[in-house]
Design a protein around this nucleic acid. Structure first.
Lengths: 134, 134
DNA sequence: TGTACTATTGATAACGAATCTCATTACCGT
DNA sequence: ACGGTAATGAGATTCGTTATCAATAGTACA
């Protein structure tokens, strides 16, 4: 066999993980990068993009596309599938469990002969605080 | 009062509308533009973008973000709100009525104090034909 | 502890979708 | 017809994201 090819632990990856966990809303890669830089970290932008993509595929982070097409990330409670209720003003996010929607997506797909269904279900709105502030 | 400021009808807008209606899946602005060019039309890219955006706001077209972040458009049956079941291989699309999901989104939002809820609900999968072809 | 191997980083270039600019075109009420 | 002006389109521009590649720094092993 060939060499092992192991994954390495770097402070950069850890910095991204912790910065993501410190924010309770969805953040863009660019935003997270400036946050880190402002707090003194010399981390590079490309690295932030790479780390976020990796965290997302490993299931440690949720990702979604903002209505403007930007990719946003958020640390998530690992394990099962869940959706989000997101304030389009301040970014506040609430995780939503929705077994009913889960089952609905499954059945709608198979009813039409579709396989390997993957659904996108997110609700954008104004949170209580932002609603009041208008 | 000032001048009237009316909207004008151009063959370009009509070309986009008809090309959109001729396709039964979701299409990108760029894709629609090349289709039109290939069929001999000298229409410009910026115009296609403008026409699609306008059709979307007028309710004549549905738009959504592909998982890659690209904006996709599709002629839709005007009137009420609906969702989509989309083949991620060939683009085949089925419109879905989902009053249940509609109500669910509303109630989840208000339960958490959110106002002006707007939801994104789409199911991606492999249609029957594409499933078979694997 | 030192050393070699190579995964990872990061500055920057490259890319691509979408928007903006502005001179030209052509729709449409008169 | 004519004229005011909405609409067009080629190209430049913006901006998010990915690719490049030399330099750096984890990690296994002697």
């Amino acid at each position: 066999m060939t060499a092992p090819a192991r994954k390495r632990n770097t402070w950069q990856r850890e910095a991204v993980r912790s910065a993501l966990g410190a924010d309770d809303g969805f953040v863009s890669a660019q935003g997270l990068h400036s946050t880190l830089r402002e707090s003194g970290s010399p981390i590079g932008l490309a690295t932030v993009y790479r780390a976020l993509a990796e965290l997302a595929t490993e299931g440690e982070a949720d990702s979604l596309q903002s209505p403007e097409g930007e990719s946003l990330y958020r640390a998530c409670t690992p394990g099962q599938h869940h959706h989000h209720l997101i304030c389009r003003n301040c970014g506040l996010t609430v995780e939503i469990e929705a077994d009913a929607v889960e089952r609905w997506a499954q059945s709608v797909a198979s009813e039409h002969g579709f396989t390997q269904p993957h659904h996108v279900v997110d609700v954008f709105g104004l949170c209580a605080a932002c609603s009041r502030a208008r």
